[in-house]
Amino acid sequence: MEGYVFDIRHYSVHDGPGIRTAVFMKGCPLHCHWCHNPESQEMMPVEVVKSKSIGEKLIQMPEIIGKKMSPEQVVQEVLKSRVFFEESGGGVTFTGGEPLMQPDFLLDTIKLMKQYNVHVALDTCGYAQPAHYNEVISAVDLVLFDLKHTDSEWHRENTGVALEPVLRNLKSKAQAEKPIVIRVPLIPGFNMFEPVYSEMADILNELPGLQQIDLLPYHHIASHKYTRLGLENKMKGVKEPDKEEVDLAFDFFKAKGLKVTIGG
């Protein structure tokens, strides 16, 4: 069993406790307009051309994004950072893309990872078949769960998929037994409204394993990727939220008795 991975990045410090290694898996069922990793959406590897500087000149060099790896290969690469996990209480975070797009490969890799006693986190959009979701969730130590909206229509319009399967997984029995961190991307014009915050807070206050909410304000950092991949950037013209707007969301969730961070 092999899977498609597009990057393994060490010293990741925002995707769970301690110093972590993030495994970026390819393929995503969602197509969020604000996606920071558009190159991850397709399961198959993509070739892009990158400019590299040689003194004053720029040289075009092709680069393939995504490669087929076995669970053993992934684990071997992740374990390069083992000493850092041990010193910091860190571990590995599977992210993407959507890791649950490759459930069997993901599960094999997680099980192998656990043989080395490494802390495993899963960063997921929650859109997956319940059987896959439950099985993978039971094998990890922490879930980082994206909640983008509370209205099904808005959700479908901007991410491409329905909200119900996401909420079903969020409220599942398997999930109730795992620590969970909710990550809310703050997207101007999409979900930065008080009624949305209010409905989110209601959902979150029902979650037994909830540790905290990370608010992730939208930024333009990935716009060059859309150009390079020849994709339409639907966020063109959307401004990054300013500090006051972000603070408003922060204060709202805090007032609801939730532990909130900005930036994760």
């Binding site: 010293y11 410090v13 301690g18 110093i19 000493v83 850092f84 041990e86 010193e87 910091s88």
Partner: peptide
């Protein structure tokens, strides 16, 4: 985390 990096 910088401290942990150094310790490692």
């Amino acid at each position: 985390k910088i401290g942990q990096l150094v310790r490692a």
